[in-house]
Design a protein around this nucleic acid. Structure first.
Length: 336
DNA sequence: CCTCCACCGGAACGGAGGGGGA
DNA sequence: TCCCCCTCCGTTCCGGTGGAGG
C-alpha cells in the first residue's frame, strides 16, 4: 500500500529545510550581522520585518542554526511571543534556552531570573518572534544591556514595535540591522513547494498545474501554501488515492483556512465564544447591540469594557472584522 | 467650526488561585 | 500548615478620537 505522503515531517509548519531555496540575500545580511560572534566579538542585533508567511521565522532559525554549527559554544533559543506574551514566560523561556529553568516557579522573583540570565558566560542569540505581541516591552530593556545577549526581533512592522519603546531603547534598536521581507512571488512559492514535495511526497503524486494553483491561492504566503499542500496530501491519503486529485486541492483550500480558524476558536473562553456566536448569527452589528445580545445570552455577563477587550482579541485572531470609527463602528464575523 | 455622543483602549486596582518556603 | 509572592482576569475610571448635526 503506497501513500502520497512519504515524510510528514517535511510538511509541518515548523520544518526547517537544510537548504534555503530563496532569500539568500536575507541569509547573507543576517549572517553578516551575527558573524562577529565567531570572532568572540559582539554581534549586531537584527530586526526582521515583513508580512506573515514571508519566511522571516524560517530564515532566522536557519541562520542561527548555521552559526551554531560553526561554533559550539553559542547558545540560542527561539521564543514565540504570541504564545509567551508576558514577562515571566519570556524570561522563563530564555532560561530554558540555557538549561537553568529547572527550579523556576511562578513565585521566583524577577530579579533572580534576570541575574541568572546575566550570569550566562557564552554568547546567546535570542530569536523573539512576533515581538509586537509582547505585552510588556520592559523585558527588552532588561535584556538589551547584557553584553552576551544578541536579539533577533521578528515583527510585521518595525515602527509598530519601536513606537512602544522608550526613547533610549528606541534609538539603540534603530541602529540594529533591519532586514525587510516581501511576500514570495508566485515563482518562488512554486519552487519552495517543489522542494517540500520532493522530500515529503512520493514521486509523481502532484502535477505542475496543481502546484501552480496552490501557489496562486496562497498569494505569497508560504505558510498558507504549505498548509494547503499538507491538507491536500492528507486528504488524498485518507481516501486511499495514489495521487493528489484536483478535488483534494479544492477542499484543501477551505480546509487550510478552517484549520487556522479552528485553532483560533479553541483559544476562546465561554464569554468570548458567546460574542463570536452572536456575530456569526446576526451578521454585522454595532458595539452596543453586540453587548445587549451578549448580556441576554449569558447568565453572568461581563462588563462592556471586558467585551471590548474580547472584541479586540477576536480581531487579532482574524475572527472578526471591525469597520468604521466612533459611533459608526460595526463588527462582523469574518467568513473563512 | 463646535459640541455631543458612542466607542476605544490605557491605567490602576483587587480578588482568586497557585506554588514555594518557613 | 500558613504566609507570601506572583500571575491572571475582570472591574472602574477616564482621557482621547472621529462622525453627526447644529
Amino acid at each position: 500500500m503506497t501513500s502520497v505522503i512519504q515524510n510528514a515531517r517535511v510538511l509541518q509548519d515548523d520544518f526547517l529545510p537544510k537548504e534555503i531555496v530563496h532569500r539568500h540575500e536575507a541569509v547573507n545580511q543576517m549572517s553578516k550581522a551575527l558573524e562577529p560572534v565567531l570572532e568572540d566579538d559582539r554581534p549586531q542585533d537584527t530586526f526582521l520585518v515583513g508580512p506573515s508567511g514571508a519566511g522571516k521565522t524560517c530564515i532566522a532559525r536557519y541562520t542561527v542554526d548555521q552559526l551554531q554549527e560553526q561554533v559550539l559554544d553559542i547558545k540560542s533559543h527561539y521564543i514565540d511571543c504570541w504564545q509567551h506574551s508576558n514577562r515571566f514566560r519570556v524570561l522563563y523561556k530564555i532560561l530554558e534556552g540555557v538549561k537553568t529553568s529547572y527550579d523556576i516557579h511562578r513565585s521566583t522573583p524577577e530579579d533572580e531570573m534576570i541575574a541568572r540570565i546575566q550570569s550566562v558566560d557564552s554568547p546567546y542569540l535570542l530569536i523573539l518572534d512576533e515581538v509586537d505581541q509582547l505585552d510588556d516591552m520592559e523585558v527588552l530593556r532588561k535584556l538589551y544591556p547584557m553584553p552576551h545577549i544578541t536579539m533577533v526581533l521578528i515583527a510585521n512592522r518595525r515602527e509598530e514595535v519601536l513606537s512602544t519603546l522608550d526613547e533610549r531603547l528606541q534609538s539603540r534598536l534603530r541602529s540594529s540591522v533591519t532586514i525587510r521581507f516581501d511576500r514570495y512571488t508566485q515563482a518562488e512559492l512554486v519552487s519552495l513547494l517543489d522542494d517540500r514535495i520532493t522530500w515529503g511526497l512520493a514521486p509523481d503524486t502532484i502535477t505542475t498545474d496543481q502546484v501552480h494553483r496552490i501557489a496562486d491561492v496562497a498569494a505569497g504566503n508560504a505558510r498558507d501554501a504549505i498548509s494547503i499542500l499538507r491538507s491536500a496530501a492528507r486528504n488524498a491519503d485518507h481516501e486511499g488515492a495514489s495521487e493528489i486529485r484536483d478535488s483534494d486541492i479544492s477542499s484543501a483550500i477551505p480546509a487550510a483556512r478552517e484549520e487556522l480558524h479552528e485553532q483560533n476558536l479553541k483559544k476562546l473562553n465561554e464569554d468570548q465564544h458567546a460574542v463570536y456566536d452572536i456575530l456569526t448569527d446576526e451578521g454585522e452589528l454595532p458595539p452596543n447591540e453586540i453587548y445587549d445580545l451578549y448580556a441576554d445570552r449569558v447568565s453572568e455577563p461581563k462588563t462592556k469594557r471586558t467585551v471590548r477587550t474580547y472584541l479586540r482579541k477576536l480581531e487579532d485572531y482574524d475572527l472578526v472584522r471591525a469597520t468604521g470609527n466612533g459611533p459608526n463602528r460595526t463588527y462582523e464575523a469574518r467568513d473563512r
